[in-house]
Write a protein that binds this DNA or RNA. Sequence first.
DNA 1: ATAAATTAGTTACAAATGAAACTATTTGAT
DNA 2: ATCAAATAGTTTCATTTGTAACTAATTTAT
Lengths: 140, 140
Amino acid sequence: MKLEDMLAYKMAMAASDISESLYNVYASYGLVMPEWRIMATLGHFSPDSKVMSAKALSQATRLDKVSVSRALKRMEHNGLICKTLSKNDGRFFDVALSPRGEAMYNEIIPKIRLWQQSKLKNITDSEYEIFLKVIENFSA
Amino acid sequence: MKLEDMLAYKMAMAASDISESLYNVYASYGLVMPEWRIMATLGHFSPDSKVMSAKALSQATRLDKVSVSRALKRMEHNGLICKTLSKNDGRFFDVALSPRGEAMYNEIIPKIRLWQQSKLKNITDSEYEIFLKVIENFSA
DNA sequence: ATAAATTAGTTACAAATGAAACTATTTGAT
DNA sequence: ATCAAATAGTTTCATTTGTAACTAATTTAT
């Protein structure tokens, strides 16, 4: 087996490179990685499902529940999210981006898009489709 | 922009899933992630280049030099590597897998290969080729 | 030749992390 | 209805981590 063929190795290295590169974008907004992942998740889902529980965020972001709890505390403190006890079930919180959080999200997203385009400039649409299919497979 | 199209997000999630899944393989040998990355790198390169410096390992594995230093200390203590001062340049160490480290590597690799095959069972060779091309691009 | 600058690696310390214990709420069994 | 089991989220504490300071070796400039 060649290292060149080592899927996990390649993925980890690429993810690490991407992660570092992306850090420069959201860090300029004072966000750390868990906060950015949460913002990205909430921002994406907010059109349809306005709220998510901490548990759902934990699953979507692959952050453990302690990290989510702490990130949400900071984000609430910074006015980026609204956190209210769920009416149906007092164990859950309904978490959503605040207007301010939504504004920040909408400011960051175009920069991410630009960054992503630069990363994909040598890749055709059909190649990217296949790439997505492959990594979709990994998480399945 | 749809979350479905968020490259970085998808990569981070897939890498996280893969990393967790792979952890079960090397953890059973008492290795932690930095140790496994170092072993994989040394094991792969050992046919041609028998030794690597801690710095080279740090670059290859995307671990910072402190992590590498600590991992090498543990691995040396466990008899998995040999670490000798370079003759040419007294700042470098020549690091290589010990026979015991090599044996462990050769025991783990087939399990990684099996694991990888199961992850790729729905993927054709040409699709995998394209996938590799795309992630190669990220690190460039 | 010598002193400043650079580089490899380690150490120390402060910050981030996660497992386990904890609180609070809900569900399910009797 | 009541009590045990389960679930969401928080807190505690011990470990892990990374930045910055350090040591030691080498290179570069003068």
